[in-house]
Structures are given as C-alpha cells and as structure tokens.
Simulated assay, not measured.
Amino acid sequence: MTIFQELEMYKNFDELATDLLDLAKEILPEQFIFLSSINDTQQVILKLSNDNTSIDVTEGTIVNLNDTLCQHIDFGTKQPLIYEDVSKESSLGDFKNILEKANIKSYLGIPISFVNGEKFGTLCAVNDQVSRFDEKSIHLLQRIVRMFSYYLDLERFAYRDVLTNLYNRRYLAKFFEDHHDSGGTVFFLDLDGFKGVNDLYGHDAGDMVLEEVASRLLKFIDGYEDVFAVRLGGDEFVIHFSQPTSAERLSEMATRLLDSLMTWDDDFQLSASLGIATYSINSEIDLKTLLKNADFALFQAKKSGKNAYQFFETEKIV
C-alpha cells in the first residue's frame, strides 16, 4: 500500500490541501504552486493552484522521481531547495533539458515530512520566468507546511498501530469497506511461542519482537503491488493482497514469509503460523467473516504442528 492510496482515507484532505495552496498563493502570487507526494521512486502531483500557465504540470501525473527537481531536496535538514534561475545552475547538467520542456525557469521546493521523519512530499512554486524568493516568504511557507504536517500526522495516527507503525484494524475495515468488491487474499498470522518470550524476558522484549516482526513483514511485501500489512492486536497480523494470485503462488509466498520469521537472536524460540483466505470479485463476504475464515485456517495450521500455513476450506468447518 502506498501513501497515495492512504490519502484517499484522510478526512478533509482535499479541502486542507486547497487551503494550503491558497495560502501559498497569497504569499507568492506570481508563482504556479503545486502539492506533491513522493516515495523512493515516484512523485505524484496531488493538487495544483488554479492558474492558466504555460508550465506543463498536470494534476494526477505520476513522474519518475529521477526526472524531477524534488529528488534534490534534503529531507534530513528540512531545508528548501531554491533555483531562482535554473539556466544558471551548472549542477543540474542535462536535467535542464527536462525543465526547458516543462517551461520551468525557476523553482522553490519545500519538503513535507511526517513527525517521525518519513517523507510525505513537497510544496513547490515554479515559474516560466526567472524569480526572486525572499527569506520572509520562504519562512512563511515553511510555517504553513509545518501546520499541514501536523494534520497529516493526526490522520495517520488514526490508521496506524502505535507500536509497530503498521496499519491497524480500523484501516483494514475502512479499506475493505471501500474495496470489498475487488477481490483479494488475506494472510492471517500469529507467532508461535510469543507468550514464552513475554513470560521469560518481559513485555519490553515482547514489544521488541513485535517491532521486528513488523519490520520483516514490510520487507516481505516490498515490491508487491496493492498489498499492505496490519497489526490486529497482540501478536496477530494480517497481510492483504488485492491482486489475483494462484494457489501455487500463494503457497510459495506463505513459505517464504514463514521462513523469514523463523530465525531469532537471544535464544527466542519463535516461529509463525499462517491462515490464508481468499474472496472473489463482487463477493458479498464481510470483513468479519473473511477474518474468521482466515483465523480458522490459522487454527488448522497450528494443529498441524505450527510453523505452517493452511488455506481456508469450508468443508473443514465442523
């Protein structure tokens, strides 16, 4: 799951994003303003100021991050990136050709991050003419961006597990409500031996294990499209896949996931068990039933000896 899809669930995002652009436009009335969100490889243009402009930037466009000026922004220092006359920036090299095609002659990029430092995107001001960006205007834009960041964090906290930063049950419920007719698969897993870790080493060690599980789940889903991980509570986790996948492929994925959760330091005797349940396009199943099915398959996996997976099969219910 990407930040772009997560934004669809944020309340009043469009309204506040419009307010952000309007305020920025008050500060820099001559500039073309846009809000973007970025990840490690792409930039999405989320919203534009309402201008008639010769600059070739379109709302909803997805751009390779390497083809944008925003790739040069230092999110670590949270400092703006300023090019008042891109034609004089020798560091841009051949990238000037891309800017010329987009008719961008000046650029100001303000980084936007979540409180934990994770990138969200940028507030950008561009012009088809050389510009001058004064310090006061830049400072005001940074303050507006900071307030916008607080809003983003409030929204994110509503859908994130506090300990692991994975999505929570509320997010899963909202996603399923909006996309239940698209079909998909859930992996429902919990840890074998987790109670022993808490009993022997304490809850701090247990929390460390849960954080590490979350890290491994995120590593596991990296590279898959339309997939996200959820902590339901305790040591119960769900991975949701939206793309149709064969049983053979799901078996391969389940094996690889279980293998990734077998090796632990500090003499922790841990593994995981996994239940798999699928639902078809236009299915009338609700989330409660889907999770119940996956949980039943998980129970069967544990009965088979743990560190195993099982598919949900209706005929096995007694």
Rank of each mutant, 00 (worst) to 15 (best):
291 L>S: 03
79 Q>R: 04
82 I>S: 00
121 G>W: 04
269 Q>P: 00
162 V>S: 14
36 S>K: 04
138 I>N: 01
78 K>F: 04
186 V>E: 00
315 E>Y: 12
48 L>A: 03
165 N>K: 14
83 Y>P: 02
127 N>A: 14
108 L>S: 14
49 S>K: 09
199 D>L: 03
124 C>K: 00
175 F>L: 09
62 I>C: 09
307 N>F: 13
237 F>A: 04
297 A>G: 09
21 L>Q: 05
48 L>F: 09
312 F>L: 08
51 D>K: 15
262 M>D: 11
272 A>Q: 02
209 V>T: 01
3 I>A: 01
186 V>P: 00
178 D>L: 12
45 I>Q: 05
92 L>T: 01
11 K>Y: 11
166 L>Y: 13
281 I>Y: 04
94 D>C: 05
175 F>T: 07
74 D>M: 05
108 L>V: 15
97 N>K: 15
308 A>L: 02
266 D>L: 13
219 K>L: 06
249 R>V: 12
191 L>Y: 04
300 Q>W: 06
173 A>G: 10
140 L>E: 05
88 K>R: 15
70 C>M: 08
250 L>N: 10
274 L>P: 08
308 A>F: 03
146 R>D: 08
48 L>H: 08
19 D>P: 00
160 R>W: 12
272 A>C: 04
244 P>K: 05
293 N>L: 11
96 K>P: 04
163 L>W: 02
74 D>T: 10
205 A>P: 03
209 V>C: 01
66 N>H: 12
114 F>Q: 13
47 K>N: 13
245 T>R: 13
285 I>Q: 04
91 S>C: 04
214 A>M: 03
193 G>R: 01
8 E>P: 00
34 F>N: 14
42 Q>H: 14
317 I>H: 09
176 F>Q: 02
318 V>Q: 04
229 A>W: 02
202 G>M: 06
153 D>P: 14
157 F>Y: 11
293 N>R: 15
116 N>K: 13
87 S>G: 08
107 Y>D: 01
261 L>N: 10
279 Y>S: 08
11 K>G: 07
236 E>F: 05
317 I>L: 14
9 M>G: 06
170 R>P: 06
247 A>H: 13
195 K>H: 12
55 I>G: 10
165 N>C: 10
23 L>D: 03
120 F>W: 02
33 I>A: 08
125 A>F: 13
80 P>C: 08
267 D>Q: 10
165 N>W: 09
289 T>G: 03
239 I>M: 13
94 D>Y: 11
252 E>F: 15
51 D>P: 07
156 R>D: 09
226 D>P: 00
127 N>H: 13
117 G>A: 08
232 L>W: 08
52 N>H: 14
245 T>V: 14
180 H>V: 00
284 E>Q: 15
60 G>H: 07
135 E>H: 12
139 H>S: 11
78 K>V: 05
18 T>N: 07
114 F>V: 14
131 S>P: 01
222 D>G: 12
310 Q>A: 12
272 A>M: 01
157 F>Q: 13
